[in-house]
Design a protein around this nucleic acid. Structure first.
Lengths: 122, 122
DNA sequence: ATTTCAATTGAATAATTGCTCAAATGTTGT
DNA sequence: ACAACATTTGAGCAATTATTCAATTGAAAT
């Protein structure tokens, strides 16, 4: 803490001016946290495949399990995560529950990421 | 295995036709794997903050550590991951190593994800 | 040569995560 | 009421991961 009772960085800086300029342009930590949590949803093979599938069509849990080759239980756990993060929504029809994509941004995000992947395929 | 010695799905399907149609439109598993690995890089708070910082300016390891409030060693470990995934590049200048963003897609991906986050901020 | 400093590396540890298994819910059909 | 079925849930486990710490590398300065 300095004399004004502010927290000051005790790590040695090489270029303090540059660091402060960058810091000023960064989003709030809270937004960075939200962003990283959003990307976490896309960072698992199974979850990403679920999202890509739902981008094509609405599907029930059982069919998602078949598509991904993962147990129904595991899919249900993953769907709960995706639901909590507002990436999928669901609708009940009798015994069955149909899930669908709840965000038009997902496709755009995946498309941009695909460009990155393809750029470095050798 | 069926009579042709192919692996067949033993899970019961609800709507086989729909599943096959979706399956046909999905990217290869190898691309899904690459995509999920790309998103994994963005899914950690520290790494994402590093990338957002480098999007603003080229920075040395020490200054990135100061910016993020994380030890130099931890930053170095994370930078190695980002370097392996072709998200950052580096240039040496004497004792110091300057890192910079090596992908113009990162900004677009983050921008799209920001829209998702802001849509659900209540 | 020796010291100093920025950065890297490897081992170790605590925390997180994705899956399995078993049990529970809730709905439909008999 | 009961059985069958789709889905959910919670506990437990193995694998992964982000950080710390200590030691090392490589470059500049004395």
């Amino acid at each position: 803490m300095n004399k004004d009772n502010n927290i000051v960085c005790e790590v040695e800086l090489i270029d303090e001016k540059k660091v402060k300029a960058v810091q000023k342009r960064l989003p709030d930590d809270s937004l960075i946290t939200e962003l990283s949590e959003t990307f976490k949803n896309l960072s698992d093979f199974t979850r990403l495949k679920i999202l890509l599938s739902l981008a094509e069509d609405e599907l029930c849990v059982c069919d998602i399990a078949a598509l991904t080759g993962v147990s129904v239980s595991a899919i249900s756990h993953q769907l709960r995560l995706l639901k909590n993060n507002r990436l999928v929504s669901h609708r009940k029809e009798g015994k069955m529950v149909y899930y669908s994509l709840d965000d038009e941004h997902i496709n755009k995000i995946v498309n941009e990421a695909s460009k990155h992947c393809k750029e470095y395929a050798e």
